[in-house]
Nucleic acid binder design. Structure first.
Lengths: 196, 196
DNA sequence: AAAATATTTGAGCGATTGTTCAAATATAGC
DNA sequence: GCTATATTTGAACAATCGCTCAAATATTTT
C-alpha cells in the first residue's frame, strides 16, 4: 500500500554525472542539477540526501563506467595489450569530442577538492585507485600473453600508465593541437621495451 | 593634490594567488579574498575591476613565479640538466608540503574552467605554454652542454616533461605514498637515453 | 589651514546558494 | 472507491554570492 519512485535512478545518476563531469563540483549548482535530471528539490533530497550525495553517487557511476570500458575493450580487442592501447586512445582522443569533459572526472575532482570536502576527495582518490587496479589486471594479462616482459612489475607499470593518461588528458585540454596519437605511441614504446 | 594607494599590489596579488591556488576559482569567494588580502570590496574593485580581474592577475603572477623558478635553479645548479631535474623535484616533491596546493595552479585552472569562463581558460592555457617554452630553453641549453642528445627535438622533449610533471603532480595528490623520487628518476632516464 | 583629489570603508543591493517542508498527487492493498 | 502510504511538487528559508556607491578618510598642493 504505497507508491514507488517513478524516476529511473540509473538514468538520473548518468545525467548528474555528465553535468558534474563537465562543470566540476563547485560550479554545479542544485538548480543546474534540477534542470539536468528533471527532478524537483524534494525528490532529489529524498533520493540522495544532499548535493554531496548526488556527487558521490556520480563518482561511483563514473568509476564503474571507466572500469567497464576496460572490460568492453578487452572483449573487443585481439589481445590484452591491444585492449589497453585502444582504451588509452579512446580515453585520451575520443573524449576530446565525445565526453562532457576531455578530462577524467576523478582527476578533475582530486584536482578541485581540498580538505574542506575531505570525504568526497578521499572517495575520488579511492575510485582512482580502483581504476589503477583494473589497469594492472590488464597488464598482467598482457604479461601472461607475452606482450609485455614478465620481469616488469605490473603495479609499477599501471602507475606509469595512470600518470601518462592524466598528463596526456590535461595536456590535450591545454593544447588543442597536441599530437596525441604520436604521444600515446611513444608511451607504449617505453612499456613494451624489452629492457626497463 | 591627491592620494596614492597604500596597499602593496605585489604582496596583495601574492596572497590572492595563494588563496586561488589552494581553493580554485569557483570555490574562492570575494569574501574569502577580502579576508586573505585584507582589503575591502571597494578597494578591490577599484584596483582589479572584478573577481576575474584578481584571478587573471594571480595567474600572471603564478606563471612568472614558475618561470622564475627555472631561472633560480639554473643559477644555482651545476648544469642545465641538473637545474631541470632540481626544478622538477622541487615542483613535484616540495610542493606537496610547502605550497598552497600540490598541483600546478595553471593545470588546476585548465582542469576546472569551461567555456563559461572562456577568457580565463585561454589565458591559463597561454601561460602554461610559456612555462613549456621555458622548459624548452633549458633543454636546449642541456643539449648544447652535451647532457642531452642534440638529435632530439627540444620542443618535443619539453612537451614530454610538461606531461610528466602534470601527471606526477596529480598522481602525488591522489596517492600520498607515491614513490615520487623514483618516478622522477625514471622519467629522466628516458630523456637522457642515447637512443630515442 | 584650506582646498582639491584621491583612496578606503562598509552597509547593502538583487541574485543565487543549498536545503526544508507542508501541501498536492499518485499508487497499492482492501 | 476508499484508505493508507509513498513520492512529488514548488514556494520559501537563511545564508552567501559578486558587486556598487555614497560617505568617510587620507594625502598633497596651494
Amino acid at each position: 500500500m504505497s507508491k514507488s519512485p517513478k524516476f529511473d535512478r540509473e538514468q538520473v545518476v548518468a545525467k548528474a554525472t555528465n553535468l558534474y563531469w563537465e562543470r566540476g563540483y563547485h560550479a554545479t549548482s542544485m538548480r543546474n542539477l534540477q534542470d539536468a535530471i528533471d527532478m524537483r528539490p524534494g525528490s532529489i533530497y529524498a533520493a540522495f540526501g544532499s548535493k554531496d550525495g548526488v556527487f558521490r553517487e556520480s563518482l561511483e557511476h563514473y568509476a564503474e563506467q571507466s572500469i567497464g570500458r576496460f572490460r568492453a575493450q578487452r572483449a573487443a580487442a585481439s589481445s590484452p595489450l591491444q585492449a589497453l592501447k585502444n582504451t588509452v586512445r579512446q580515453v585520451v582522443i575520443q573524449s576530446k569530442t565525445d565526453a562532457p569533459s576531455s578530462m577524467c572526472m576523478l582527476v578533475k575532482t582530486v584536482a578541485e577538492l581540498t580538505d574542506n570536502e575531505a570525504e568526497l576527495l578521499e572517495f575520488a582518490k579511492a575510485k582512482l585507485k580502483s581504476v589503477e587496479d583494473a589497469i594492472a589486471e590488464l597488464i598482467k594479462e598482457a604479461q601472461q600473453a607475452g606482450e609485455i616482459s614478465a620481469e616488469k612489475n605490473a603495479e609499477h607499470l599501471a602507475r606509469f600508465v595512470q600518470v601518462q593518461i592524466a598528463g596526456l588528458r590535461i595536456y590535450a585540454k591545454a593544447n588543442d593541437d597536441a599530437p596525441l596519437e604520436q604521444m600515446i605511441s611513444e608511451m607504449f614504446e617505453s612499456i613494451t621495451a624489452t629492457v626497463q
